[in-house]
């Protein structure tokens, strides 16, 4: 399905989500405030987006940007779902009730960024040991064991 058709379809079913839809770099993107994430995600799932492909976060300085990519097999379309949470209090509702696929991916984001997913059934570190300090993929992560690569270029 082309993006214009997707937008029309989305706007006809959920008019309130329509202004949040944009096209960024050729991909349909739905940017929602953090408190509306769960309901928007639920709407997307009900619209037929049955696969949660990717879930990750990006450190944007003051905020963390959460990026979800959901996909519909039926419509053969994919959409980005984006939201931002403040750095000093990163909390976001968990999407495990909607897509169980989010389980491990949310744990990974928690492990790497320290973002707390409220309602997650088992939020623990997944890749790093349980006693690890800090969240490595944050840009301000400091660890004296890291040796910085010399700048050759």
């Amino acid at each position: 399905m082309r993006i214009e058709e997707l937008r029309e379809h989305l706007c006809s079913v959920y008019p309130d989500l329509c202004p949040l839809f944009s096209v960024e770099f050729g991909d349909g993107t739905l940017t929602v405030p953090a408190d509306r994430l769960f309901s928007a995600a639920q709407d997307m799932r009900d619209l037929g987006f049955d696969l949660l492909g990717m879930l990750t976060a990006v450190d944007r300085g003051e905020t963390f940007e959460l990026v979800y990519r959901v996909r519909s097999r039926e419509m053969s379309a994919a959409i980005f779902l984006k939201t931002e949470v403040p750095r000093d209090e990163p909390r976001i509702p968990s999407l495990v009730p909607l897509w169980p696929a989010a389980d491990w991916q949310e744990r990974e984001v928690y492990d790497m960024f320290g973002i707390v997913f409220e309602g997650h059934p088992d939020l623990r570190r997944i890749l790093l040991p349980d006693d690890w300090e800090g969240y490595p993929l944050r840009k301000d992560y400091a660890d004296e064991r890291i040796i910085r690569r010399p700048d050759y270029i």
Partner: peptide, 18 residues
Amino acid sequence: SVRPYRMHVRSPAFQNLS
């Protein structure tokens, strides 16, 4: 810049193992 700001790999093996 000349370096990626962030790279994330959506790993199928990770999802399958879950």
